[in-house]
């Protein structure tokens, strides 16, 4: 077990290094002088100071040396300054956005997991009945509709027409912070975020459970006289969940993509909105900082998924 975790972590670390190289190269491909990223716009520098800074940052050095210097700074938490907002460092800017995004994605994925798994079980147990077919159609539409369209439609119906939910932001402007207020703002975007993922999880769960229900040990359990409910929940579902775990892990990466659209439609102050605004204003240091943080999160989640999978299914480590 430990050696598996060690090996898998080493690959993850390698991926991280490669990702940072990729992002560094993209950063250098971006138009403009890379030194702009390191100047605090609120305190402009003279030409000779610029030369000193260029020398100190090693921007006159060959690219690999530059990469190492950049990496050293980044490891120390120095991602440079935002070009657009004077005097704001990239790191604090990104850090204050992680919480809201984690809240939105966590809630959305939790809803998707609960909804998807229970609907999948229901669908597999009642296979080929009307409710099953209806659920399949709904899930097909859910998978096919893009996040920005579900976000717009959701906003239009639930906030504009029905006025059930506030139309954006994380808190009511000017009101004192309260958990109920945040929750009211959270419900709609989180539910909309969960639609596509719930549909995907449901389809996997249904297929996987149908496969398991044909296995001998399920027949054995039934023959022993175990009640159907417990056969499904205890014997079948536990094993059917295995492939779904991998799916949920890989869903997180896709969910970040969906969260970008939801955050920009609902004006949710998260990483996605930060990234979109930074891209809109060509604020490269922020783009790269945010991308790197998102990349790190995705790699960590994948690592975690693999480890969880190895814990619940010991066969994995053998191969």
């Amino acid at each position: 077990m430990l050696s598996f975790i060690a090996r898998r972590s080493a690959t993850g670390l390698l991926m991280l290094v490669a990702l940072s190289v990729l992002i560094f190269i993209l950063l250098r491909l971006a138009p403009g002088d890379p030194i702009d990223a390191y100047i605090n716009p609120s305190s402009p520098m003279s030409a000779s100071d610029l030369e000193v800074l260029r020398d100190r940052l090693g921007l006159d050095q060959p690219l690999p040396v530059q990469y190492l210097a950049w990496l050293r700074a980044a490891l120390g938490g120095d991602f440079g300054y935002s070009i657009q907002r004077s005097g704001v460092g990239v790191l604090p800017l990104v850090m204050e956005r992680i919480g809201p995004t984690a809240l939105l994605m966590g809630t959305g994925l939790a809803i998707a997991i609960v909804l998807g798994i229970s609907a999948g079980i229901f669908s597999a147990v009642r296979r080929n009945t009307l409710p099953d077919i209806a659920l399949s159609v709904v899930s097909f539409v859910g998978i096919s509709s893009p996040a920005f369209l579900t976000a717009l439609l959701g906003l239009y119906f639930f906030s504009v027409l029905l006025r059930w939910a506030p139309s954006g932001g994380m808190q009511t402007a000017g009101a004192p912070f309260s958990i109920a207020d945040v929750l009211a703002h959270l419900v709609l975007p989180a539910c909309l975020l969960s639609i596509g993922h719930a549909a995907l999880i449901m389809r996997y769960m249904r297929a996987s459970l149908l496969e398991v229900l044909n296995q001998d040990y399920v027949r054995t359990a039934r023959a022993k006289g175990v009640r159907e409910f417990w056969v499904i929940i205890k014997h079948a579902t536990r094993n059917a969940l295995l492939p779904v775990i991998t799916l949920i892990g890989s869903t997180v990466g896709i969910a970040i993509g969906g969260a970008i659209f939801l955050e920009s439609v609902f004006n949710w102050p998260g990483m996605g909105l930060l990234l979109v605004n930074a891209v809109g204003t060509r604020d490269y240091p922020v783009i790269m900082g945010a991308t790197l943080v998102i990349g790190i999160c995705v790699i960590l989640v994948n690592l975690l998924t693999d480890i969880v999978y190895a814990v619940v299914d010991p066969r994995i480590q053998v191969s």
Binding site: A30, I256, G257, I260, V279, I299
Partner: peptide, 16 residues
Amino acid sequence: LAMTLPPVIFLLVLAS
């Protein structure tokens, strides 16, 4: 590696 980053993020960076 190219498949690690969520596609939309990659898309945004390239588009920028």
